[in-house]
């Protein structure tokens, strides 16, 4: 099995706020991420697909196809957007790195027809990221 990874970057704003909590609790739980005016990040997304290289093309999947999927599913939805207000898939969720990674997994998994989505890694900053896997899929079986 071979893993193939494609990286893209997008910029988006967000705010952490749970309407079920009081303003004081929100400030306590989320700190400066609760700023009512929001803030933003340059996100880096690494998408890893696992599979056997096709004997004819030598590819796990065509990178240009993956590039198109990422453009359509992620860039157009999230780049230069406000994640709280403009991404319906995140409605009702706090747009943390964990939740955004999970939503991206859900968007990409059904679109990848060659190979299998292995990992979605989303960096919110160089020191903070979330990884998403299908349970069991990082254990390579004989």
């Amino acid at each position: 099995m071979v893993l193939l990874t494609r990286k893209i970057e997008f910029s988006a704003s967000h705010r952490y706020d749970n309407p079920a909590l009081s303003p004081e609790e929100n400030r306590r739980v989320f700190g400066k991420c609760n700023n009512p005016h929001g803030h933003g990040h340059n996100y880096t997304l690494e998408v890893t697909v696992a599979g056997e290289p096709d004997p004819v093309t030598g590819m796990v999947l065509d990178l240009s196809e993956l590039k198109k999927i990422l453009e359509r599913e992620v860039m157009q939805r999230m780049d230069h957007r406000h994640l709280n207000y403009e991404v319906p898939e995140l409605a009702g969720q706090i747009p943390t790195c964990e939740n955004v990674a999970r939503v991206i997994w859900g968007l990409l998994e059904p679109k990848i027809k060659q190979g299998k989505l292995h990992r979605v890694r989303l960096y919110e900053s160089p020191d903070l990221f979330a990884d998403c896997y299908r349970n069991g899929s990082n254990e390579v079986t004989k």
């Binding site: 790195c97 964990e98 990221f129 998403c132 349970n135 899929s137 390579v140």
Partner: peptide
């Protein structure tokens, strides 16, 4: 081969 199925697992790094 990759084990199929399973729930989604999210990790924080």
């Amino acid at each position: 081969m990759v084990a199929a199925g399973g729930d989604l697992r999210v990790e924080l790094g």
